[in-house]
Amino acid sequence: MTPSKMIVEECIVVEGRGDTAAVKQAVDADTIETVGSSVPAHVIAQIKLAASRRGVIILTDPDYPGERIRRIISEAVPACKHAFISKQEAKAARGKGNGVEHARIDAIREALASVRAPVGRAQQNNGLSTQDIRAAGLLAGPDARERRALVGDRLNIGYANGKQFLKRLQMFRIGHEEFHEAVAEVLQQEEEHS
Score class of each variant (00 low, 15 high):
I73G: 07
C80G: 04
A21K: 13
I44P: 02
L155R: 04
P40E: 15
I57Q: 05
Q188S: 04
K167F: 15
L169W: 04
S86I: 08
D153T: 13
A50F: 01
I69Q: 07
P3M: 04
T130V: 00
I58P: 00
V43F: 07
Q189M: 08
G137M: 12
V56T: 02
A122E: 15
D30R: 13
A26Y: 04
T31R: 05
M6N: 07
C11A: 09
F179E: 06
A90T: 02
S4A: 12
R145W: 11
G55I: 03
A111L: 05
E177N: 11
V77E: 06
G36H: 08
D19T: 06
Q188Y: 02
A50Y: 02
S52D: 15
A135H: 02
K91N: 12
A22R: 00
R154K: 11
C11D: 10
G127V: 10
C80A: 10
S37I: 00
A83C: 09
H180P: 00
A45E: 11
H82V: 08
V8W: 09
S194D: 14
E192Y: 00
E185F: 03
E33G: 00
R53W: 03
K91L: 14
G16C: 09
P142H: 14
A22W: 00
N125Y: 05
K96H: 15
G95W: 04
N98T: 09
D106H: 01
V8K: 03
I157G: 09
Q88Y: 05
E89M: 02
I32K: 01
D143P: 06
E9M: 03
H180A: 10
E67P: 08
R104V: 00
A182T: 05
L59G: 08
E177H: 12
V56G: 07
Q189Y: 00
E192H: 04
A45V: 01
A90L: 06
T31F: 10
A160W: 13
N156G: 06
E89P: 12
S114F: 13
T60K: 04
L155E: 05
K5W: 01
R109P: 12
G158Y: 03
I12R: 05
V77A: 05
R109A: 09
I72G: 06
V35K: 09
I44Y: 04
A107V: 00
E177D: 14
A144E: 10
I57V: 12
Q124L: 07
K167S: 14
K163H: 13
Q123H: 12
V77N: 03
I12M: 02
A45S: 14
E15D: 05
M6Q: 13
R168Q: 13
V43S: 02
E146R: 15
G162M: 08
A184L: 10
A83S: 09
V183M: 02
H180K: 08
N98M: 15
I174H: 03
R116S: 10
E181H: 02
I57K: 01
R53Q: 13
I44A: 05
T20G: 06
G99L: 05
A92F: 15
I73R: 01
S114G: 06
E110W: 01
S74T: 11
A111V: 08
P3D: 13
R116L: 09
S52G: 15
V186N: 06
E15P: 01
A140C: 11
